[in-house]
Nucleic acid binder design. Structure first.
Lengths: 180, 180
DNA sequence: ATTGATTTTCAAATTATATTGAAACTTTAA
DNA sequence: TTAAAGTTTCAATATAATTTGAAAATCAAT
């Protein structure tokens, strides 16, 4: 398993980006590699292609499974396990978002709610609570909104995004219609 | 400068989250601290509140300035510099998004375009390029869309987000109107 | 220009994170 | 049941990121 220059570049880039998306370099590379491989890959093939240890691959796969980003494939008559991305590019992106929401946004919302609910002990705290309320509202709006978007069919989503700046026109339109 | 338990909790939490948002723990804490402080803080106050070295604060401030997240305030008759968040919570969130787009999405789009444009050298590469095209399209759609949203007035944005589930109704509406 | 207050820099030390590889474990075919 | 093929685990190691603090640089008032 040896990658052409072009493919290697892509995989390395995924490594760099991987850390931004919530996992480490190696795991980013693994996702990149799996995504551009038409055939499912065995752990050994992954280790060879990325020049990392077998144990590292095993841990990476485990992590990716916890994110639901890979699926295991069994080939009849072959004892090895093969791995593939779990869904389309869109599915994968969605899963990453969803998982990050669970790991990052939700705990933050909980902390903010807990902090805001109990009365301020000082002017300092009162101001802090106002700010926390702002953050809370922002996070909640964004969360709800993204949940709504996920509920739309891909076609509806396409339509909506293609509306682009004319979204504002539609909003105005809606206002007028509702007033009647 | 000593924080109450509640405020300290919040600041520590910002530290945990900080790394998810593109900077390190200390810098996350600094943002948290500045956001809940009504008054601008001096570097020494920050160092004391977070129990970190003066040098660390200096580097953190520099980093936050490169993200445009803090502004410097000069108090007449005082030689120290004081720091405050650069805008509302909403402004800050926007700046983080914008900056991450520049640092992460844009370079990825460039790499993908470069890879896709030159002809595939093998079947392997052909498949990889199809996948890269998918990623490219997704990133581009999301980027354009978020640029559109940023162009809307805060009120329009509010309206749009509050539409919630009725977004799909608006889309349907638009379809019908266009057909006429 | 000098001084003292303040900020910045950066090499060294510390801390945190990722990786290896050998041993333990699991699985399956004979 | 055994043994070979495969996978996982985790202590030790290697690598990377963060933090400190003392020295250098900057700044502003005299």
């Amino acid at each position: 398993m040896i990658l052409s220059q072009k493919l290697e570049n892509f995989v390395l880039h995924c490594g760099e980006m991987g850390s931004r998306w919530g996992f480490n370099r190696t795991i980013g590379q693994m996702v990149g590699l799996l995504v551009i491989s038409e055939q499912p890959l065995s752990a050994n093939e992954i280790a060879e292609a990325l020049r990392i240890s077998r144990g590292n691959v095993s841990m990476g796969i485990k992590e990716l499974q916890s994110w639901q980003l890979v699926k295991v494939i069994h080939v009849p008559g072959d004892r090895k396990e093969y791995y593939s991305p779990n869904g389309s590019i869109w599915d994968l992106a969605n899963k990453v978002f969803e998982e990050r929401r669970k790991r990052e946004i939700d705990p933050t919302l909980t902390l903010l709610r807990d902090s805001i609910i109990e009365p301020a002990q000082s002017n300092e705290e009162a101001y802090a609570q106002e700010q926390m309320q702002q953050i809370h509202d922002l996070l909640e709006t964004v969360t709800k909104w993204s949940a709504e978007l996920q509920r739309l069919s891909p076609e509806q989503l396409q339509t909506l995004m293609k509306l682009g700046s004319s979204v504002s026109k539609v909003i105005d339109l809606k206002d007028k219609l509702l007033k009647k």
